[in-house]
Nucleic acid binder design. Structure first.
Lengths: 118, 118
DNA sequence: TCAGCTACTTGACTTAACAAAGTACTTGAT
DNA sequence: ATCAAGTACTTTGTTAAGTCAAGTAGCTGA
């Protein structure tokens, strides 16, 4: 089965979705991957999520704290910083307007596909 | 003024929009840039569009023909191939479903932003 | 002890947008 | 005749970010 989405389409959006999930509830990487799968992003892999979280931390959009677990190694819990909340608000807005614009263009009628070759 | 969109958010979507515009009407690079600006993608530059068109041609999704112009150099007119029409149909569908999914997540309510620092 | 789940990290690869510079053709003004 | 400005395409380098694959470790239960 092919991936349910073009990897490229996820670019930029993933970090926004991550911020949203963390704003809803503090979470750690492994769990975030599961939550992504639950919302329908079933193809997103650990190798995508962990670097994205590190990036967000490096950019000051999330903060992290280590919490030891009784069912495995310590977990790194993330939640948005104030800057992260800002980024989520403005990012979601610009995503929305771009998505609406694109949706508008992609649903315009096209003339019947001509037979190729004159 | 900041760009009206995050460059990353455009990834993958641009080629879809290009196919749509070319399906509506055969067009050449320079004109495509103007049409993109008209639909609201005001920050997209030539350096983005020309390579994207070449990519589509290399992938067999558009075909090109040179037409000399009386107001400048020859124009390279592009239109979708049958494979391009297919790519547009399936691509637009997967864009739509991803966009709906993301929109759904990003509009979920979040608890009040806590004051940072316990 | 060893398989399997939990949990994070790292590095190499790839795609695609952005930026900037360059080539070249046309028209029109000086 | 020259030169600027608009038209039109190409190319090269940079950067961002998702994918893949492998590796490290802790915990549980057979």
């Amino acid at each position: 089965m092919p991936p349910s989405h073009d990897p490229q389409l996820l670019k930029g959006v993933l970090s926004l979705v991550l911020l949203q999930l963390l704003a809803e509830r503090e979470s750690y990487g492994y769990e975030v991957v599961q939550r992504l799968h639950e919302v329908g992003l079933t193809d997103v892999l650990e190798g995508t999520v962990y670097p994205a979280l590190s990036r967000l931390e490096r950019e000051g959009r999330v903060s992290a704290r280590l919490v030891s677990s009784n069912s495995g190694p310590a977990r790194k819990y993330y939640r948005p910083t104030p800057a992260g909340y800002d980024a989520l608000t403005t990012g979601a807005a610009s995503w929305s307007s771009l998505a609406a614009l694109v949706e508008g263009v992609l649903t315009r009628p096209v003339p019947t596909e001509p037979l190729q070759g004159d």
